[in-house]
Amino acid sequence: MAWLTGLPLAVDLVLGATLLWLAWRALSSPDLFQAVALFIAFGVILGLVWARLDAIDIALAEIPLGAGVTGALLLAALSQLQPAEVDARAAPSATEANEHQAGQPGQTAETADADEAQHKPAVFRALLAAVMGLLLFAALFSLGLVTWQLWEPSSGLTQQVNTHLPESGVEHPVTAVLLNFRGYDTLLEIAVLLLALIGVWSLATASNLGDTTPEPVLAALSRLLAPLMILVAAYLVWVGAHAPGGAFQAGSVLGAAGVLLRLSGWRLPAGAAGWPLRLVLALGVAVFAFIGLAVIGLGEPLLGYPTAWAKHAILVIELAATLSIGAILASLFIGGRP
């Protein structure tokens, strides 16, 4: 069985090489659809790399979020981009004329810049590009050199986290850090997600993504998968207290269920698309902030849950956050306000 000892190393080498190759192909592919497909594959392999590095939590976040949700978002963006690209190619002169007519402030600077760039001789531009390229290369090279010297692992705050784990209300150190020790960051991260959705909603109304009647296979599959995914999400929240899992992972599975249902033709009832939807979207931040502030009334510091009921507080926060994250991700995929 001596050959088995070399196996992990071989797996790592293959994973590393595949990762680099996929990254290069995704970046160099001229076809956007192919690039997105490669990017999704890249996310899956990256998840496996995290798993090999014993970072199961990151792997669990990377695969559904980095590959799944991001891939779905990129594909959704691509599907909206392509008609616009075709239009632009068909009538370039018309759009240009429109742009020149639109007398918006800010317009002048851009056109002036573009004109200036055209007047500069090609030699000058090539020289500038060469200098910038050299500078960038030097910067990346020295960064690589510094990173190379970091190969010795650092234990970071692991010791401290383990010492205080019993006071946190959960047994899994990652959940303890995310929901208790550094809960303030997590609260604001959920706000970042909500903010991204508000930003998207401020730009456009939802397009008719996937409006056609679904194929029977997709419809049957989603009827089968969606309840299962909701179950998995619930399990991931629950298990987060003592093993890898938690709100972000569960939320991304929930969001994926939402995407699947949407693609198979399911629509939110008109009555639920108004404030009920908004309430679900805002619930995560609201509940987290409410509990974090309410404990001040009990004489605790901001976001300092008393150890006795920290476990329950964290579970309530995680449930609310899961619902919100799932709803936000699915809404981001749909891409505009209802």
């Binding site: 705050l157 401290q160 960051d185 510091p301 901001l302 976001l303």
Partner: peptide, 13 residues
């Protein structure tokens, strides 16, 4: 200086 959650640096924020 306020320790969020009462943990204090470096564990907390």
């Amino acid at each position: 200086r306020i320790a969020v959650g009462g943990w204090g640096a470096p564990l907390g924020i």
